[in-house]
């Protein structure tokens, strides 16, 4: 195991980690503001990857520009889902999270099966003009991965500014802390939820486009992304943007380094172990809420 292979894996891990981070942020936003754990988060990503794939392959789109289409489509879907479904589920009281989990689990199953029926289970990938390697020193950096990383980082930065500085961002933060108090401060909960979920799915739409140049798609590709998004939510805490970025990179690095050492298959164990460790170390936000004083 040479140093250069490990360093290569490290770089790879950081680059893909940026995309993981942004996907995790989408989930973190929905969970933090609405309490929605979207089990189908990965499948939404899968759908956006298919959209990007077909637009790029058969309509000659630039893969990164398909992000605009994805964001639009998924934003609308997010709006509809939130308004007609999650709104009702959220207000079901204490067991709401179970219903939401079950509903999105059903959605996840259905989407996987649907896309399997529609497009078959074969893995699909597309050659784009973003290919090849950059040479930095004696390290090779994949061009599409680098571009995607930068765009993902840009997105995170933009989100950070939005959440910290804007009026709506403040409303999102307040609702994420304490829904009831936020309502007392006359923050319109429905509007806030709407914005949060639209952004959440919009981010996923962007990520689908970011992945297309170097990641192949099949109906089941969403599962591992979704799990990593969960880890980011657990590690980074609700809506904690710098935390999510760091977590994403950590996950990416562990995955690629692990893959270099024991093969991609077994490297997945490291991811699971990481998750379990996070839960054992118990950062704030995932412990049972104590009765507030």
């Amino acid at each position: 195991m040479t140093v250069s292979i490990l360093t290569q894996a490290l770089i790879d891990g950081i680059l893909i980690g940026g995309v993981y981070a942004v996907i995790g942020l989408g989930l973190s936003l929905a969970y933090g503001v609405m309490g929605v754990v979207n089990w189908a988060h990965g499948e939404v990503l899968m759908v956006s990857m298919y959209i990007s794939y077909y637009l790029t392959k058969f309509a000659g789109f630039d893969p990164y520009l398909t992000a605009l289409v994805n964001i639009l489509v998924l934003g609308v879907v997010g709006f509809i889902l939130q308004k007609y479904i999650f709104n009702r589920l959220i207000n079901r009281g204490k067991a709401a999270w179970r219903d939401i989990l079950l509903f999105t689990a059903g959605m996840s199953m259905a989407l996987q099966a649907l896309f399997n029926l529609l497009f078959g289970a074969e893995v699909k990938s597309v050659e784009t003009r973003y290919s090849g390697m950059l040479e930095l020193g004696n390290m090779l950096v994949s061009v599409p991965k680098l571009i995607s990383f930068l765009l993902a980082a840009l997105c995170c930065a933009g989100l950070y500014v939005f959440i910290q500085k804007s009026e709506m961002g403040r409303a999102l933060r307040a609702t994420s802390q304490d829904r009831i108090t936020a309502q007392l401060m006359s923050i319109n909960a429905n509007l806030v939820y709407c914005v949060a979920f639209v952004i959440s799915l919009g981010i996923v739409g962007l990520s689908g486009a970011l992945l297309t140049p170097f990641y192949s798609v099949n109906p089941y590709v969403g599962v591992s992304f979704c799990f990593k998004a969960f880890i980011i939510v657990a590690m980074g805490g609700k809506g904690n943007i710098p935390g999510a970025m760091l977590s994403g990179v950590i996950i990416g690095v562990i995955e690629k380094l692990g893959g270099a050492m024991v093969g991609d298959n077994l490297a997945q164990i490291f991811i699971f172990v990481l998750f379990i460790l996070i839960l054992l170390v118990k950062p704030e936000g995932i412990l049972e809420k104590r009765v507030r004083g």
């Binding site: 689990a105 059903g106 959605m107 199953m109 259905a110 996987q112 029926l117």
Partner: peptide, 8 residues
């Protein structure tokens, strides 16, 4: 599977 998901 699709139907099961929809039923759920």
């Amino acid at each position: 599977t699709l139907i099961s998901g929809l039923i759920l």
